[in-house]
Amino acid sequence: MKELSSAIQLIPLENYIFLSVALFSIGMMGVLFRRNTIAILMCLELMFNSVNLLLTAFSAYHSDPSGQVFVFFIMIVAAAEVAVGLSIVVMMKRNVDSIDINLLNRLKW
């Protein structure tokens, strides 16, 4: 554990920023790319987690536990979001027999 705990000092913070920016962009690209509603939800999870990673990195580099507590809260929100989102998907499948996001254009009414 001693080795691990000192590893952080070898890795510059920029690396974590680049990594999470890349992950966030990939997740966003997925949201735009996919039509499958479940896949879109998964891409959203990816974006959530990139933010979590960045928060944790800042928290560790600033020696401030608040960042990690916020990650905890984000997980709570994500869990709630997934529960509601997936139930919407279930209902959608039941009503229009598809999970194609473009069939949700009834939202315009």
């Binding site: 966003m28 949201v31 735009l32 039509r35 996001i101 473009n102 949700l104 254009n105 009834r106 939202l107 315009k108 009414w109």
Partner: peptide, 14 residues
């Protein structure tokens, strides 16, 4: 613009 196409909305948002 307002025809309910979610993909388009997402693009617009981004």
């Amino acid at each position: 613009l307002q025809q309910g196409n979610i993909s388009f909305y997402l693009f617009a948002m981004v």
